[in-house]
Design a protein around this nucleic acid. Structure first.
Ligand SMILES: [Mn+2]
Ligand SMILES: [Mn+2]
Ligand SMILES: [Zn+2]
Ligand SMILES: [Zn+2]
Lengths: 151, 151
DNA sequence: CTCCAGTTGCAACACAAATGCATTTGCGTG
DNA sequence: CACGCAAATGCATTTGTGTTGCAACTGGAG
Protein backbone atom coordinates (compact mmCIF):
# COMPACT_ATOMS: atom_id res chain seq x y z
CA UNK A 1 0.00 0.00 0.00
CA UNK A 2 2.22 2.68 1.43
CA UNK A 3 4.99 1.18 -0.60
CA UNK A 4 3.12 1.73 -3.84
CA UNK A 5 2.41 5.31 -2.87
CA UNK A 6 6.06 6.17 -2.37
CA UNK A 7 6.99 4.46 -5.63
CA UNK A 8 4.20 6.40 -7.28
CA UNK A 9 5.43 9.66 -5.82
CA UNK A 10 8.95 9.05 -7.07
CA UNK A 11 7.73 8.22 -10.56
CA UNK A 12 5.54 11.30 -10.68
CA UNK A 13 8.23 13.58 -9.33
CA UNK A 14 10.59 12.38 -12.03
CA UNK A 15 8.36 13.87 -14.70
CA UNK A 16 8.88 17.41 -13.45
CA UNK A 17 5.14 17.95 -13.31
CA UNK A 18 3.22 18.59 -10.14
CA UNK A 19 2.99 15.89 -7.51
CA UNK A 20 -0.66 15.90 -6.48
CA UNK A 21 -2.67 13.61 -4.25
CA UNK A 22 -4.85 12.42 -7.07
CA UNK A 23 -1.87 11.45 -9.19
CA UNK A 24 -0.14 9.61 -6.36
CA UNK A 25 -3.21 7.65 -5.32
CA UNK A 26 -4.30 6.72 -8.84
CA UNK A 27 -0.82 5.56 -9.81
CA UNK A 28 -0.50 3.62 -6.55
CA UNK A 29 -3.69 1.76 -7.47
CA UNK A 30 -2.28 0.88 -10.88
CA UNK A 31 1.02 -0.23 -9.35
CA UNK A 32 -0.78 -2.57 -6.98
CA UNK A 33 -3.16 -3.99 -9.54
CA UNK A 34 -0.97 -6.42 -11.43
CA UNK A 35 -3.25 -6.09 -14.43
CA UNK A 36 -4.91 -3.50 -16.61
CA UNK A 37 -7.73 -1.62 -14.86
CA UNK A 38 -10.67 0.29 -16.25
CA UNK A 39 -11.40 3.80 -15.09
CA UNK A 40 -14.22 2.40 -12.95
CA UNK A 41 -12.00 -0.19 -11.35
CA UNK A 42 -9.45 2.47 -10.48
CA UNK A 43 -12.13 4.66 -9.00
CA UNK A 44 -13.55 1.79 -6.94
CA UNK A 45 -10.13 1.15 -5.42
CA UNK A 46 -9.61 4.74 -4.35
CA UNK A 47 -10.68 5.34 -0.76
CA UNK A 48 -13.87 7.38 -0.84
CA UNK A 49 -12.70 9.75 1.90
CA UNK A 50 -10.01 11.01 -0.49
CA UNK A 51 -12.83 12.64 -2.42
CA UNK A 52 -11.15 12.33 -5.77
CA UNK A 53 -13.49 13.30 -8.56
CA UNK A 54 -14.40 10.96 -11.38
CA UNK A 55 -13.22 13.40 -14.02
CA UNK A 56 -9.94 13.87 -12.21
CA UNK A 57 -9.34 10.14 -12.41
CA UNK A 58 -9.90 10.31 -16.15
CA UNK A 59 -7.49 13.19 -16.46
CA UNK A 60 -4.84 11.60 -14.27
CA UNK A 61 -5.00 8.37 -16.25
CA UNK A 62 -4.63 10.34 -19.45
CA UNK A 63 -1.70 12.24 -17.99
CA UNK A 64 0.02 9.04 -16.88
CA UNK A 65 -0.35 7.73 -20.41
CA UNK A 66 1.14 10.84 -21.96
CA UNK A 67 4.10 10.65 -19.61
CA UNK A 68 4.62 6.98 -20.52
CA UNK A 69 4.19 5.90 -16.94
CA UNK A 70 1.09 3.96 -17.92
CA UNK A 71 -0.37 2.89 -21.21
CA UNK A 72 -3.95 2.47 -22.21
CA UNK A 73 -5.54 -0.16 -24.35
CA UNK A 74 -8.96 -0.55 -25.85
CA UNK A 75 -10.96 -3.71 -25.51
CA UNK A 76 -13.96 -5.31 -27.10
CA UNK A 77 -16.14 -3.70 -24.46
CA UNK A 78 -15.27 -0.21 -25.68
CA UNK A 79 -13.69 0.66 -22.36
CA UNK A 80 -10.18 1.92 -21.85
CA UNK A 81 -7.94 -0.09 -19.58
CA UNK A 82 -4.79 1.30 -18.00
CA UNK A 83 -1.71 -0.52 -16.89
CA UNK A 84 1.60 0.63 -15.51
CA UNK A 85 4.44 0.32 -17.98
CA UNK A 86 6.35 -2.55 -16.43
CA UNK A 87 10.10 -2.73 -16.86
CA UNK A 88 11.18 -5.61 -19.06
CA UNK A 89 8.20 -4.97 -21.28
CA UNK A 90 9.14 -2.92 -24.28
CA UNK A 91 7.07 -0.08 -25.60
CA UNK A 92 5.25 -2.65 -27.64
CA UNK A 93 4.21 -5.93 -26.10
CA UNK A 94 1.35 -8.38 -26.51
CA UNK A 95 -1.67 -8.45 -24.24
CA UNK A 96 -3.87 -11.17 -22.87
CA UNK A 97 -7.64 -10.97 -22.48
CA UNK A 98 -9.60 -13.61 -20.60
CA UNK A 99 -12.74 -14.57 -22.48
CA UNK A 100 -14.48 -15.58 -19.26
CA UNK A 101 -13.74 -12.90 -16.67
CA UNK A 102 -12.43 -10.15 -18.91
CA UNK A 103 -9.09 -9.78 -17.12
CA UNK A 104 -6.51 -7.97 -19.19
CA UNK A 105 -2.79 -8.10 -18.64
CA UNK A 106 0.47 -7.32 -20.36
CA UNK A 107 2.62 -10.16 -21.64
CA UNK A 108 6.36 -10.38 -22.04
CA UNK A 109 7.61 -9.36 -25.44
CA UNK A 110 8.00 -12.20 -27.89
CA UNK A 111 11.11 -11.99 -30.00
CA UNK A 112 9.37 -13.06 -33.20
CA UNK A 113 7.90 -10.63 -35.67
CA UNK A 114 4.99 -12.01 -37.71
CA UNK A 115 4.84 -9.16 -40.25
CA UNK A 116 1.85 -9.90 -42.46
CA UNK A 117 2.06 -8.78 -46.06
CA UNK A 118 0.62 -5.32 -46.64
CA UNK A 119 -1.04 -3.97 -49.80
CA UNK A 120 1.23 -1.92 -52.04
CA UNK A 121 1.79 1.63 -50.84
CA UNK A 122 1.10 0.74 -47.23
CA UNK A 123 3.66 1.16 -44.51
CA UNK A 124 3.69 -0.39 -41.06
CA UNK A 125 5.10 1.39 -38.02
CA UNK A 126 3.83 -0.70 -35.14
CA UNK A 127 1.94 -3.82 -34.37
CA UNK A 128 -0.46 -4.95 -31.71
CA UNK A 129 -0.99 -8.53 -30.68
CA UNK A 130 -3.84 -9.62 -28.41
CA UNK A 131 -4.08 -13.17 -27.16
CA UNK A 132 -7.47 -14.35 -26.01
CA UNK A 133 -8.26 -17.34 -23.88
CA UNK A 134 -8.76 -18.35 -20.26
CA UNK A 135 -6.80 -16.95 -17.35
CA UNK A 136 -5.50 -19.19 -14.58
CA UNK A 137 -8.49 -18.63 -12.32
CA UNK A 138 -11.11 -19.23 -15.01
CA UNK A 139 -9.17 -22.18 -16.35
CA UNK A 140 -9.10 -23.78 -12.93
CA UNK A 141 -12.78 -23.07 -12.47
CA UNK A 142 -13.81 -24.71 -15.73
CA UNK A 143 -11.57 -27.69 -15.00
CA UNK A 144 -13.29 -28.20 -11.66
CA UNK A 145 -16.75 -27.81 -13.14
CA UNK A 146 -15.96 -30.41 -15.78
CA UNK A 147 -14.69 -32.85 -13.12
CA UNK A 148 -17.83 -32.40 -11.06
CA UNK A 149 -19.97 -33.08 -14.10
CA UNK A 150 -18.15 -36.36 -14.74
CA UNK A 151 -18.77 -37.70 -11.26
CA UNK B 1 -24.11 -0.42 -57.06
CA UNK B 2 -26.86 -2.61 -58.47
CA UNK B 3 -24.30 -5.36 -58.70
CA UNK B 4 -23.57 -5.20 -55.00
CA UNK B 5 -27.26 -5.30 -54.25
CA UNK B 6 -27.85 -8.51 -56.14
CA UNK B 7 -24.80 -10.09 -54.52
CA UNK B 8 -26.13 -8.93 -51.19
CA UNK B 9 -29.54 -10.39 -51.88
CA UNK B 10 -28.06 -13.76 -52.79
CA UNK B 11 -25.94 -13.84 -49.64
CA UNK B 12 -28.88 -12.92 -47.46
CA UNK B 13 -31.23 -15.39 -49.10
CA UNK B 14 -28.69 -18.15 -48.47
CA UNK B 15 -29.12 -17.73 -44.73
CA UNK B 16 -32.77 -18.74 -44.84
CA UNK B 17 -33.72 -15.62 -42.92
CA UNK B 18 -35.89 -12.89 -44.42
CA UNK B 19 -34.62 -10.82 -47.29
CA UNK B 20 -35.50 -7.27 -46.32
CA UNK B 21 -34.65 -3.94 -47.88
CA UNK B 22 -32.59 -2.81 -44.95
CA UNK B 23 -30.47 -5.95 -45.03
CA UNK B 24 -29.88 -5.77 -48.75
CA UNK B 25 -28.91 -2.09 -48.75
CA UNK B 26 -26.66 -2.29 -45.69
CA UNK B 27 -24.84 -5.34 -46.99
CA UNK B 28 -24.48 -3.73 -50.43
CA UNK B 29 -22.77 -0.78 -48.74
CA UNK B 30 -20.34 -3.10 -46.99
CA UNK B 31 -19.66 -5.01 -50.19
CA UNK B 32 -18.82 -1.80 -52.01
CA UNK B 33 -16.67 -0.33 -49.28
CA UNK B 34 -13.45 -2.30 -49.62
CA UNK B 35 -12.68 -1.59 -46.01
CA UNK B 36 -14.23 -1.77 -42.56
CA UNK B 37 -16.95 0.80 -41.95
CA UNK B 38 -18.38 2.22 -38.76
CA UNK B 39 -22.09 2.28 -38.16
CA UNK B 40 -22.08 5.99 -39.00
CA UNK B 41 -20.24 5.47 -42.25
CA UNK B 42 -22.72 2.82 -43.28
CA UNK B 43 -25.62 5.06 -42.43
CA UNK B 44 -24.12 7.96 -44.38
CA UNK B 45 -23.84 5.79 -47.49
CA UNK B 46 -27.46 4.71 -47.39
CA UNK B 47 -29.65 6.89 -49.55
CA UNK B 48 -31.81 9.01 -47.22
CA UNK B 49 -34.96 8.36 -49.23
CA UNK B 50 -34.76 4.72 -48.21
CA UNK B 51 -35.69 5.90 -44.73
CA UNK B 52 -33.75 3.20 -42.95
CA UNK B 53 -33.65 3.83 -39.24
CA UNK B 54 -30.45 4.18 -37.24
CA UNK B 55 -31.37 1.35 -34.91
CA UNK B 56 -32.20 -0.91 -37.82
CA UNK B 57 -28.71 -0.37 -39.21
CA UNK B 58 -27.27 -1.43 -35.86
CA UNK B 59 -29.47 -4.49 -35.83
CA UNK B 60 -28.71 -5.45 -39.42
CA UNK B 61 -24.97 -5.13 -38.80
CA UNK B 62 -25.31 -7.31 -35.73
CA UNK B 63 -27.32 -9.84 -37.71
CA UNK B 64 -24.74 -9.93 -40.52
CA UNK B 65 -22.08 -10.60 -37.91
CA UNK B 66 -24.03 -13.46 -36.33
CA UNK B 67 -24.55 -15.03 -39.74
CA UNK B 68 -20.82 -14.72 -40.46
CA UNK B 69 -21.46 -12.61 -43.53
CA UNK B 70 -19.64 -9.73 -41.89
CA UNK B 71 -17.42 -9.45 -38.85
CA UNK B 72 -16.98 -6.61 -36.45
CA UNK B 73 -13.88 -5.28 -34.83
CA UNK B 74 -13.23 -2.77 -32.10
CA UNK B 75 -10.84 0.09 -32.60
CA UNK B 76 -8.99 2.54 -30.43
CA UNK B 77 -11.82 5.01 -30.87
CA UNK B 78 -14.31 2.77 -29.09
CA UNK B 79 -16.31 2.38 -32.27
CA UNK B 80 -17.30 -0.87 -33.94
CA UNK B 81 -16.28 -1.34 -37.53
CA UNK B 82 -17.88 -3.86 -39.86
CA UNK B 83 -16.39 -5.54 -42.86
CA UNK B 84 -17.69 -8.24 -45.18
CA UNK B 85 -16.01 -11.56 -44.65
CA UNK B 86 -13.90 -11.80 -47.77
CA UNK B 87 -13.14 -15.21 -49.19
CA UNK B 88 -9.49 -16.13 -48.87
CA UNK B 89 -9.42 -14.56 -45.44
CA UNK B 90 -9.85 -17.14 -42.75
CA UNK B 91 -11.99 -16.72 -39.68
CA UNK B 92 -9.02 -15.10 -38.02
CA UNK B 93 -6.89 -12.65 -39.94
CA UNK B 94 -4.84 -9.58 -39.16
CA UNK B 95 -6.10 -6.03 -39.64
CA UNK B 96 -4.53 -2.78 -40.68
CA UNK B 97 -5.29 0.61 -39.15
CA UNK B 98 -4.00 3.83 -40.67
CA UNK B 99 -2.64 6.15 -38.01
CA UNK B 100 -3.40 9.19 -40.15
CA UNK B 101 -6.86 8.73 -41.63
CA UNK B 102 -8.15 5.89 -39.47
CA UNK B 103 -8.92 3.57 -42.37
CA UNK B 104 -9.30 -0.02 -41.27
CA UNK B 105 -9.03 -3.04 -43.52
CA UNK B 106 -8.61 -6.78 -43.39
CA UNK B 107 -5.28 -8.31 -44.33
CA UNK B 108 -4.55 -11.69 -45.82
CA UNK B 109 -3.78 -14.36 -43.27
CA UNK B 110 -0.12 -14.78 -42.49
CA UNK B 111 0.97 -18.40 -42.13
CA UNK B 112 3.16 -17.71 -39.13
CA UNK B 113 1.97 -18.04 -35.55
CA UNK B 114 3.91 -15.86 -33.09
CA UNK B 115 2.52 -17.45 -29.88
CA UNK B 116 3.91 -15.37 -27.04
CA UNK B 117 4.62 -17.17 -23.79
CA UNK B 118 1.71 -17.13 -21.35
CA UNK B 119 1.86 -17.17 -17.53
CA UNK B 120 1.33 -20.60 -15.95
CA UNK B 121 -2.28 -21.70 -15.85
CA UNK B 122 -3.27 -19.55 -18.80
CA UNK B 123 -4.66 -20.98 -21.99
CA UNK B 124 -4.91 -19.32 -25.38
CA UNK B 125 -7.76 -19.99 -27.79
CA UNK B 126 -7.41 -17.23 -30.36
CA UNK B 127 -5.22 -14.33 -31.31
CA UNK B 128 -5.71 -10.92 -32.81
CA UNK B 129 -3.08 -9.01 -34.72
CA UNK B 130 -3.43 -5.36 -35.65
CA UNK B 131 -0.86 -3.63 -37.82
CA UNK B 132 -0.69 0.14 -37.59
CA UNK B 133 0.92 2.51 -40.00
CA UNK B 134 0.14 4.63 -43.02
CA UNK B 135 -2.22 3.61 -45.79
CA UNK B 136 -1.33 4.20 -49.44
CA UNK B 137 -3.16 7.53 -49.66
CA UNK B 138 -1.70 8.96 -46.44
CA UNK B 139 1.72 7.62 -47.31
CA UNK B 140 1.63 9.37 -50.67
CA UNK B 141 0.39 12.53 -49.03
CA UNK B 142 3.20 12.67 -46.46
CA UNK B 143 5.77 11.90 -49.15
CA UNK B 144 4.53 14.83 -51.21
CA UNK B 145 4.48 17.16 -48.22
CA UNK B 146 8.06 16.23 -47.36
CA UNK B 147 9.21 16.89 -50.92
CA UNK B 148 7.56 20.30 -50.93
CA UNK B 149 9.29 21.15 -47.64
CA UNK B 150 12.69 20.29 -49.12
CA UNK B 151 12.30 22.59 -52.10
C1' DC C 1 -55.19 -13.92 -50.08
C1' DT C 2 -54.27 -14.51 -44.94
C1' DC C 3 -51.68 -14.81 -41.15
C1' DC C 4 -48.05 -14.27 -37.91
C1' DA C 5 -43.19 -14.62 -36.44
C1' DG C 6 -39.65 -11.89 -37.68
C1' DT C 7 -38.42 -7.22 -38.58
C1' DT C 8 -38.60 -2.29 -38.17
C1' DG C 9 -39.39 2.62 -36.29
C1' DC C 10 -39.54 5.52 -32.55
C1' DA C 11 -38.66 7.16 -28.00
C1' DA C 12 -36.27 6.54 -24.14
C1' DC C 13 -32.31 4.83 -21.92
C1' DA C 14 -27.37 3.43 -20.54
C1' DC C 15 -22.90 4.65 -19.92
C1' DA C 16 -17.98 5.86 -20.99
C1' DA C 17 -15.75 9.80 -21.88
C1' DA C 18 -15.16 14.91 -22.93
C1' DT C 19 -15.88 19.87 -22.11
C1' DG C 20 -16.62 24.63 -20.01
C1' DC C 21 -15.78 27.17 -16.33
C1' DA C 22 -15.19 28.59 -11.56
C1' DT C 23 -12.32 27.30 -7.62
C1' DT C 24 -8.37 25.38 -5.46
C1' DT C 25 -3.52 24.14 -4.96
C1' DG C 26 1.52 22.91 -5.84
C1' DC C 27 5.47 25.07 -5.80
C1' DG C 28 8.82 28.58 -7.55
C1' DT C 29 10.01 33.26 -6.05
C1' DG C 30 11.18 36.87 -3.07
C1' DC D 1 7.20 31.95 5.50
C1' DA D 2 3.80 34.41 2.73
C1' DC D 3 2.64 35.48 -2.26
C1' DG D 4 1.25 34.76 -6.95
C1' DC D 5 -0.04 32.25 -10.66
C1' DA D 6 -0.10 28.41 -13.91
C1' DA D 7 -1.53 23.89 -13.34
C1' DA D 8 -4.85 20.92 -11.50
C1' DT D 9 -9.36 19.87 -9.75
C1' DG D 10 -14.63 19.68 -8.88
C1' DC D 11 -19.03 20.03 -10.64
C1' DA D 12 -22.54 20.40 -14.06
C1' DT D 13 -23.51 19.54 -18.54
C1' DT D 14 -22.76 17.59 -23.04
C1' DT D 15 -21.36 14.25 -26.58
C1' DG D 16 -21.11 9.99 -28.93
C1' DT D 17 -22.13 5.12 -29.40
C1' DG D 18 -24.78 1.69 -28.76
C1' DT D 19 -29.10 -0.66 -26.43
C1' DT D 20 -33.90 -1.67 -25.01
C1' DG D 21 -39.09 -1.81 -24.79
C1' DC D 22 -42.91 -1.82 -27.32
C1' DA D 23 -46.22 -0.91 -30.92
C1' DA D 24 -46.69 -1.15 -35.94
C1' DC D 25 -45.42 -3.31 -40.16
C1' DT D 26 -44.25 -7.02 -43.61
C1' DG D 27 -41.90 -11.14 -45.98
C1' DG D 28 -43.15 -15.19 -47.41
C1' DA D 29 -45.17 -19.83 -46.02
C1' DG D 30 -49.42 -22.16 -46.65
MN1 LIG E 1 0.48 -3.50 -21.83
MN1 LIG F 1 -11.33 -8.49 -40.90
ZN1 LIG G 1 -10.50 -15.11 -16.39
ZN1 LIG H 1 -4.66 6.71 -44.20
Amino acid sequence: MKDFESTAETLIRSTGDRVTGARVHVLAVLLGAGRALTHNEVEARLEPELGINRVTVYRVLEWLTQRNIAHKLSGEDRVWRFSVQEQGHGGQHPHFVCNACGRVLCLADSDESPKPRLPVGFQSTEMELTVKGLCDACNEHSRRTAARGKK
